[in-house]
Simulated assay, not measured.
Amino acid sequence: MPGSQLRIVCVAGARPNYMKVKPVMDALEARGAEVVLVHTGQHYDESMNEVFFRDLGIRPPDHFLGVGSGSHAEQTGRVMAAFEPLLGQVSPDAVVVVGDINSTLACALVTAKAGPLLAHVEAGLRSRDWAMPEEVNRVATDRVSDYLLASSPDAAENLRAEGYRDDQVHLVGNVMIDTLFANLERARGSDVLDRYGLARGGYGLVTLHRPANVDDPGVLTGLLKALGEIAGHCPLLLPVHPRAAGRLAELGVPGGLRLVPPAGYLDFIALQDAARIVLTDSGGVQEETTALGVPCVTLRDNTERPITVEQGTNVLAGRAPERIVAAVTRVLADPPEPRRPPLWDGHAGDRIAEVLLSGGTAGDRRRPTDLPPGSR
Rank of each mutant, 00 (worst) to 15 (best):
E157M: 08
E34G: 13
K22T: 13
V309K: 01
V206Y: 07
A263V: 11
T207S: 09
D154K: 15
S47E: 14
A333E: 15
P153T: 13
A263Y: 01
T298Q: 01
A106K: 07
G68E: 06
S127F: 09
P60H: 05
G252V: 11
P261V: 10
G255W: 03
M132L: 15
F181R: 15
M19I: 14
R200Y: 11
G349Y: 06
G255T: 09
R319S: 12
Y18R: 03
E29G: 03
D93P: 01
P335S: 06
A161W: 12
G201S: 06
E337D: 14
P335Q: 00
I307V: 15
V144M: 09
V11D: 00
D301Q: 13
A94S: 09
P262R: 08
R186P: 02
Q75D: 05
E250W: 07
G201V: 03
D167I: 09
F181Q: 13
P368A: 07
R376P: 00
S127T: 14
T303F: 03
A114D: 02
L220Q: 09
G115P: 02
T280H: 02
T280F: 01
L109A: 12
P372S: 05
V172T: 01
P341L: 00
E50I: 11
I8V: 11
G57S: 03
P133D: 12
L193Q: 09
R243W: 06
S375I: 15
E287V: 02
P92Q: 02
G57P: 02
D301N: 14
L28F: 10
V192T: 09
T289C: 14
A362E: 08
E135L: 11
T104M: 09
S47T: 15
V278Y: 00
L28C: 04
G189S: 13
V21K: 01
D129F: 11
V172I: 12
A12Q: 00
Y164M: 00
G70T: 04
I58K: 07
G197D: 03
G197S: 13
A187Y: 01
D167E: 15
R195Q: 15
E29K: 12
N183S: 14
S282P: 04
Q311L: 14
P336Y: 10
L238Y: 04
A270P: 01
R59V: 03
P335G: 07
A333D: 15
A82H: 04
V175W: 02
P211E: 15
A81I: 10
E74T: 12
R143W: 14
E134S: 10
T141C: 09
M48E: 14
L238S: 04
E337M: 09
A199W: 11
Q311T: 11
R78G: 08
E135M: 08
P372Q: 04
L118T: 00
R126E: 11
R78A: 12
P336I: 10
L171Q: 08
A14H: 01
V297G: 03
D154P: 14
T207E: 09
R339S: 14
A81P: 00
H241K: 04
H120S: 05
P306G: 05
A119E: 03
V297P: 07
A94T: 02
A108C: 01
T329S: 15
